[in-house]
Design a protein around this nucleic acid. Structure first.
Lengths: 145, 145
DNA sequence: TATATTATGCCAAAATATGACAAAATACGC
DNA sequence: GCGTATTTTGTCATATTTTGGCATAATATA
C-alpha cells in the first residue's frame, strides 16, 4: 500500500525520485517499474501500471457514447502518460503535466493506498487548510462502518 | 491498553524512544514492533500496525472516486508513515511529520487506549487549557451508555 | 539538413536513515 | 538509603536514498 507524504525536488530536466517506500511497494506488490501518470483535481495521479490496466478494463465496459463516460475518459485517459522508473529510482514527469500543475522545484508525494498523487508544494499547502476542514466533516465516515 | 503521559527527548536525527509501557503493550497485546504514525488534529497519532491495517481495509472499501473518500484518504493515509521500533526501543519520526508539527526536542506521549498520540511539548501546553474546557463539555458522554 | 529542445544513462556528492555501542538517568527491590 | 536493573539518551560509523551534473541520444522545429 502507498502511504505517507514525501517532499522531493524536481531537476531542471523534470526528473524526480519516487519515494523509496513507494518503489518497494511497486516492486513487491505490483511487480512493476512502470507507472501511469494522469490528472486528478489539482494533482498528478500515479497508478502502478497493472492497476491502471484494470481501471481501463472497467472503463471500457461503460456505455461508450454516454456523456459522463466521454467526459470521464477525456479527463482521466486523455491525460495519461506512461513512465518508467530509472536506475536511480527517478521518473521524468512529462513537460505538459509539469506546466499544467506548475510543478517547478518542490513536489509532494501523497500515498493513497492503491495509488499516489504528486502535488506542487504550493497547491498542496493551499489545499491543506481545506483538506483539514473537509476531514472534519468526514471524520466519522469510518465510525459508521 | 495505552495509558498515561510521558515526556521524551528527540535526537537530532529524529529518533525518540517509545515509553517502555507502550512497548510492552505492543508486544503482548498486538504482537508487533511496528507502528503507523499519522496526523490527527495537532498531534501525531500512532497505531499498532495490525490495528491500522484493519482501518485501511475499511477505507479501501469506500467508493474510490467519491469526493469524501479522496479527501479522507489524503488526510489520514496521506500522512501515514510506517515505522519500526529498533533494538533500543526507539522510532524515527519522519522529517516531514517533525516539520509539520514543529517537534524539535521534547515530545509528549499520550495514551489513548487502542492508540497513542505524540505532541510537541509546546502545542500540548497550549492545548491543555482548551482540553479541560472541552472535557467540561463532553464529560457526560459515558453516562449515557 | 542543421539546430534547438527534450529525454536518458551514468557517476558522484549530499543528505538522510539505520545499527551498534556506551553513558546517563530513572525506577525498583531490599 | 544503597546497589542493581531497566530505560532513555548520546555518539559514531555505515548504509541507503536523494540530488546534481554532465555527456550523449532522441525527438521536434525551422
Amino acid at each position: 500500500m502507498f502511504r505517507g507524504q514525501f517532499l522531493h525536488k524536481i531537476s531542471k530536466t523534470g526528473r524526480i525520485s519516487v519515494p523509496s517506500k513507494f518503489r518497494e511497494n511497486l516492486k513487491k506488490k505490483h511487480k512493476t517499474k512502470n507507472l501511469i501518470l494522469s490528472t486528478f483535481e489539482n494533482s498528478i495521479i500515479c497508478y502502478p501500471y497493472p492497476e491502471w490496466i484494470k481501471l481501463e478494463a472497467k472503463i471500457s465496459k461503460l456505455p461508450q457514447f454516454k456523456k459522463e463516460t466521454v467526459e470521464f475518459e477525456r479527463y482521466l485517459v486523455g491525460n495519461a502518460h506512461e513512465c518508467e522508473i530509472d536506475n536511480e529510482g527517478r521518473i521524468m514527469i512529462p513537460g505538459i503535466l509539469r506546466r499544467n500543475f506548475k510543478i517547478n522545484n518542490n513536489a509532494i508525494f501523497i500515498g493513497m493506498l492503491s495509488r499516489f498523487e504528486i502535488w506542487s508544494e504550493n497547491s498542496w499547502n493551499k489545499n491543506l487548510k481545506k483538506s483539514f476542514d473537509k476531514f472534519q466533516n468526514s471524520r466519522e465516515v469510518l465510525d459508521g462502518i
